[in-house]
């Protein structure tokens, strides 16, 4: 059963992404694209002529996608949370290397910002994991999902996670990584056709990755988890529609200033 989910993960992520585009359109009183739009895009991309800069650049994107898939699979299989975070870091590094491997200004800017994003959210994610550990006594997702009470024991940690969700799904105010009008998609810029498709799909997987952290806060009651995910999903999109992009350096300051201190206060509260 789990394996089927793992295989279908990109499709699931695609549905979430399609739903999100509809949702955002409705928030702006538009009709918006059809729900299956991401899949139409993917089919179209398969049918385009593929132009690449050089082989390693293109292949790193493929590697990024598969490692990310592996990470999501690890989540579904209920592995160790810390491993998962570092696996995700690995995937991200592959992407960043890809961004740096071409002589393109926008790609470099995008990779720089991607690195800044890693610096910003990585510590918070690990602190969230430590928070789970303190309450459930284990880093294993299977064990974490058997406990409960994360929701009211780790409220500030949840807020901290909430602050970094927009970074990971590239939404305002923290969509500095792709920043369409500013750096034209950042790392994605030099990809086309099939190879862009891998990046397009890895975005779906990112959704699954970060929202599964939200889901964990539900603990043993999956309903609570689902409600939390839905709530966060709505909130993130609302904020995305209502705010402008912040400066890249400000993002790190905001995350370190607010998210980190919330997380620390919460963990100290649990400890003492």
């Amino acid at each position: 059963m789990t394996w089927i989910w793992i295989v279908l993960a990109p499709l699931l992520g695609g549905l979430i992404y399609g739903g999100e585009r509809v949702l955002r359109a409705r928030m702006q009183r538009r009709q918006g694209p059809p729900l299956l739009q991401p899949f139409y895009d993917m089919f179209k991309l398969l049918d385009k002529r593929t132009l690449i800069l050089h082989a390693p650049h293109a292949l790193l994107a493929v590697a990024h996608f598969f490692v990310l898939w592996f990470t999501v699979a690890a989540i579904f299989l209920g592995w160790n949370l810390i491993y998962i975070i570092f696996l995700h870091l690995f995937a991200q590094i592959l992407l960043i290397l890809a961004g740096y491997s071409v002589r393109s200004v926008y790609s470099h800017l995008g990779a720089n910002r991607e690195l800044l994003m890693v610096v910003a959210y990585e510590p918070v994610l690990i602190l969230v994991a430590v928070g789970f550990y303190l309450i459930s006594g284990s880093f294993e997702i299977t064990t974490i999902l058997q406990g409960d009470g994360y929701w009211h024991q780790l409220p500030l940690l949840f807020v901290a996670l909430l602050i970094i969700v927009p970074i990971k799904v590239k939404k305002s105010p923290f969509d500095i990584g792709e920043a369409h009008q500013e750096i034209v998609g950042g790392i994605e810029i030099e990809y086309s056709g099939v190879f862009y498709e891998f990046l397009y799909m890895s975005r779906f997987l990112e959704y699954l990755f970060i929202y599964s952290f939200v889901f964990l806060f539900g603990g043993e009651s999956y309903w609570l988890g689902a409600v939390l995910v839905a709530g966060v999903f709505l909130l993130v999109n609302l904020v995305d529609n209502a705010t402008a992009r912040v400066h890249a350096a400000d993002m790190v300051k905001i995350v370190y200033g607010f998210a980190m201190s919330f997380a620390i206060i919460n963990i100290l509260g649990v400890l003492l």
Partner: peptide, 21 residues
């Protein structure tokens, strides 16, 4: 923009030749 809403046809303004049709 919202009034004419080209996105309902699946249009995205990419700003990048390599991914446009």
């Amino acid at each position: 923009g919202p009034k004419f809403d080209l996105e309902r046809f699946g249009v995205i303004n990419t700003g990048n030749p390599k991914q446009s049709d």
